[in-house]
Design a protein around this nucleic acid. Structure first.
Length: 878
RNA sequence: GGGCGCUUAGCUCAGCUGGAAGAGCAUCUCGUUUACACCGAGAGGGUCGGGAGUUCGAACCUCUCAGCGCCCACCA
């Protein structure tokens, strides 16, 4: 017996536990059926579930469950990411509370501490994913720093290195002075700010009374200046090229060079060149062989190459300006809109900084990654993201993969006594190589840098399946079927996976990539902890159940658009689950079980043939929606069917059958109702796995668990099966509408007459009880010879005229108004039809079916107009 | 500067190949009918951002203007 109230808390967790215990999330490797696989975008191991995960993982679970029901061999590969910078920062923050830094602990102890933290808070997000209903194969859970994946990382690294695709170089990189590490271009966020532009001048060497005027936003970097550039095409300044000027304060002589980087239109036309601290200047410096002077310490304070060693850039800036003023070289300071680079994790200003770093030759790897998408081996959905992808791949820069952090994959690089590099998968091999190289045993020093987190996640699609071993899982599930993720990590992750997979596996990591938007707050603002507008999915689940949250995500997911969270909508989907629950209770109360001796496809009753056809139609639409990644369409189709068709009409329409005496009709209807309810549970299961399972299990006789039930195969629909009941529904609605317009209480049982053609009269005869019941009529009969009187109110439905005698209660003035309004609408429509049909080119050029339909509408409207006019005439004088 | 997207009912949004404008919420009016008040019945509400074009026909295609948003690059 079902409880009277739908309470998801009663069963959601138990159901999940059962699925997991039964091993239902594991693919059956003995079978030889089609494979379907998804690798989860690994969440940060120490993270907690947010609404973005709820969306991402709901969509994946829907696909996974759908494909499982299609009978495929399904793997949803779960796991977590070590999230280098993020995790290290969390632990460092903890240490800070104890008044410690990571340096106080030392590398080894610090890493131990991070592992401890991972152990302590690592399981949270996976438990939360379970609560959401995610049917991942947890027995295969992986971690980017577990033994297997670490081995994959080392192997890929060595391979790339030996192929010359990883190299070490001293280059300008984005330096995060807080974390004291290099970061990649993608980890830098440009922010608009109003800064200052400083105009000042450098005296010329050969004539200190003459000056070259320059403009800069960062005067303190002048100590790193090794030239001033002007354009060769600058008529005002070109004559200075080849001369020298004197860098004030430090009185260093630097050349004035000719370079097109200096735009005559911008600033003063002369640019100070600081090759070690500006990406453009770095290029200029290379072109002119300029020295590169590093003026910063790793924490972005100025170093001993400047007069202001130890000061921050801001402090040094103040001093520099003051000194320049003192020397009479400062000219003016103006407000200047500019963009400043910030570290997306640390939030501090990023400095271009000269260091030794390791790079992946991304431009080379991008070639195959780009081709695979161009050749549709991997398809973006929606496909517009293809452009974004190509755009980036076409302009890709070398990928800086070294991080001066402690938490992460330490690079498999060892240095010999003379800094000779040995790149091998493990220390022994490296040692052996080194010993052989030097002809004696040598001490090796391991590279201390770790790898960018995205290096290991880039291998995720194959490393989690067992690579480098050629496992059954790898053979079966690679390439994976689809990757589901947000647009924000297309470059970080999708592109890197493409590059790494094409390089290692020579095949795409996934055949499709479904990109969804962001989950925003109710007002459409981005959710962030700092704004305090985040909503915890666990609280939502607590309040409304996981099914409601899931359904919200699915029903809101339309391609290429962000989702605004809406509590009222989530509540609405909880109500939807309640509605379904109650419909199931109705079926239970009326013993709607599958009847062994009755084949629902042979149903006789119109009402049953109708719902069977509608159910089939719904199934086909949902299937089509899921096949095309149209989650909202699929979800809304089931919703409309369950509520608008099954509950609002079918259940109401079959009540008279159950309350009647016709045993044959009751048996048939029980079987059909049970069948359709089952159909609902099956089709709805991927979206709302819990409530559907609870209802499915309510029937003791199940031979298969819902999660493993077969997705229905498409059957043909006979349009005739729908006609009668569709007509009856229109008819009932017309009467209800009339009753409401007439203010007739529901209790008032009315007699109704109908003037209709033979066909419609037959339907009325067949469906008389049903119509009377739902329209609350005492009787419904053909008008025949009954005279039409002034106190009969009238409405039309399709071609039929409905007349209801209301002795003495008709407000004629109001009735005239109502009829007049109907007449006005009809006239307006008729004008439209006439305009179209009198248009010669419409009649000639539009498809015949469209023209015929227009004609039919015109005829119907004309007939109805006559009827309304009649009714008006009847009461004209009252 | 380059690219992408959005503008449809009071609100949040559907509307796939062009063929009479839809949903949920909100609003109004009825209603304790034996699945459900987390409910039922009915109703109101839109010149689909403006303009032009293509077409027999445009929310949908093209151009243009306006507003909003995102991504990438750059600004000494």
């Amino acid at each position: 017996m079902l409880d009277k109230i739908y309470n998801p808390k009663d069963f959601e967790e138990n159901i999940y536990a059962k699925w997991e215990n039964e091993g239902y999330f594991k693919p059956d490797m003995r079978q030889d059926n089609e494979a379907f696989s998804i690798v989860i975008p690994p969440p940060n191991v120490t993270g907690v579930l947010h609404m973005g995960h709820a969306l991402d993982d709901t969509l994946q679970d829907i696909l996974v469950r759908y494909n499982r029901m299609l009978g495929k061999k399904v793997l949803w590969q779960p796991g977590t990411d070590h999230a280098g910078i993020a995790t290290q920062m969390v632990v460092e923050r903890q240490l800070a509370k104890e008044g410690l830094t990571r340096h106080d602990l030392g590398r080894e102890k610090f890493i131990e501490r991070v592992w401890e933290w991972k152990k302590q808070s690592g399981g949270t997000i996976c438990r939360q994913l379970r609560r959401l209903g995610a049917s991942c194969d947890w027995s295969r859970e992986r971690f980017t720093m577990d033994e297997g994946l670490s081995r994959a990382v080392r192997k890929v690294f060595v391979s790339l290195y030996k192929d010359g695709l990883i190299y070490k170089a001293k280059k300008l990189v984005n330096w995060d002075p807080k974390l004291e590490t290099a970061v990649s271009d993608l980890e830098v966020i440009q922010k608009e700010t109003v800064g200052k532009m400083y105009y000042y001048k450098y005296p010329l060497e050969d004539n200190p009374n003459e000056y070259i005027h320059i403009a800069t936003t960062r005067p303190e970097t002048m100590f790193g200046d090794t030239a001033v550039a002007v354009s060769k095409d600058n008529p005002r300044l070109a004559h200075l090229i080849g001369k020298n000027c004197i860098l004030p304060i430090v009185n260093r002589v630097i050349p004035i060079v000719g370079d097109d980087h200096a735009d005559p239109e911008k600033g003063t036309g002369a640019v100070k060149i600081t090759p070690a601290h500006d990406f453009n200047d770095f290029e200029v410096g290379k072109r002119h062989n300029l020295p590169m002077i590093n003026i910063l310490n790793p924490d972005a304070t100025l170093n001993e190459n400047t007069p202001y060693a130890g000061l921050t850039t801001q402090e040094a800036r103040v001093k520099t300006i003051a000194k320049l003023e003192e020397l009479g070289l400062m000219e003016k300071i103006e407000d200047h809109p500019m963009v400043i680079p910030y570290g997306d994790r640390s939030g501090v200003v990023i400095e271009p900084y000269m260091t030794d770093q390791w790079f992946v030759d991304a431009p080379k790897l991008a070639v195959e990654a780009r081709r695979a998408v161009a050749d549709k081996e991997m398809q973006f959905i929606p496909d517009t993201y293809e452009k974004t992808y190509f755009e980036w791949m076409n302009n890709i820069q070398p990928w800086c993969i070294s991080r001066q952090l402690w938490w992460g994959h330490q690079m498999p690089i060892w240095y010999g006594p003379d800094n000779e590099i040995f790149c091998e998968e493990d220390e022994e091999t490296a040692q052996a190589c080194a010993d052989k190289h030097y002809g004696k045993h040598v001490e090796l020093r391991r590279e201390t840098d770790v790898l960018d987190t995205w290096f290991s996640s880039g291998l995720w699609a194959f490393s989690t399946l067992g690579w480098p071993e050629n496992t059954d899982y790898l053979k079966t599930f690679y390439p994976t079927s689809v990757l589901v993720t947000g647009f924000d990590i297309i470059f970080f992750w999708v592109a890197r996976m493409m590059m790494m997979s094409m390089y290692i596996m020579k095949r795409v990591p996934f055949k499709k990539c479904y990109i969804h938007g962001l989950v925003r707050d109710e007002q459409g603002r981005k959710m962030s902890k700092s704004k305090g507008n985040t909503v915890d999915p666990m609280e939502t689940i607590e309040k409304y159940g996981a099914d409601a949250l899931r359904f919200f995500m699915a029903a809101s997911e339309t391609q290429g658009r962000d989702i605004n969270l809406s509590d009222s909508r989530i509540q609405g989907y909880r109500n939807f689950a309640t509605k379904l629950w109650n419909a199931a209770r109705f079926c239970e109360m009326n013993q709607c079980y599958a009847q062994n001796d009755f084949d629902v496809h042979k149903a006789q009753l119109e009402i049953n043939r109708w719902i069977m056809a509608k159910a089939e139609e719904m199934t086909q639409e949902v299937t089509c929606g899921l096949n095309n990644y149209r989650f909202a369409e699929a979800a809304n189709t089931v919703y409309q069917f369950v509520w608008g068709t099954f509950c609002d009409w079918y259940i109401e329409l079959i009540k008279p059958i159950f309350y009647g005496q016709d045993q044959k009709a009751i048996t048939e209807t029980r079987a059909v109702a049970a069948f359709v309810l089952d159909r609902i549970l099956i089709v709805l299961h991927p979206f709302m796995p819990f409530v559907t399972t609870a209802l499915w299990d309510n029937l003791q006789t199940r031979t298969v668990d819902l999660i493993n039930a077969s997705w229905p195969k498409t059957e043909s629909i006979n349009p005739n099966d729908k006609k009668q009941i569709d007509w009856a529904i229109d008819f009932i609605s017309s009467i209800r509408s009339l009753r409401s317009a007439m203010n007739l209480p529901a209790g008032a049982k009315l007699k109704a007459f109908v003037k209709a053609d033979q066909n419609d009269r037959e339907i009325i005869a067949c469906q008389n009880t049903l119509i009377c019941n739902l329209a609350r009529l005492e009787s419904l009969q053909p008008l025949g010879d009954t005279p039409i009187t002034k106190d009969m109110v009238q409405t039309v439905c399709r071609n039929a005229t409905i007349l209801i005698p209301l002795k003495g209660v008709v407000d004629f003035a109001a009735e005239r108004q109502r009829l007049q309004k109907e007449l006005d609408t009809l006239n307006k429509n008729l004008e439209g039809y006439a305009r179209k049909l009198s248009n010669q080119s419409f009649v000639e050029r539009a498809p015949a079916a469209v023209v015929a339909e227009e004609k039919r509408r015109q005829n119907e409207a004309m007939e109805n107009k006559a009827k309304v006019e009649e009714a008006l005439a009847r009461i004209a004088n009252f």
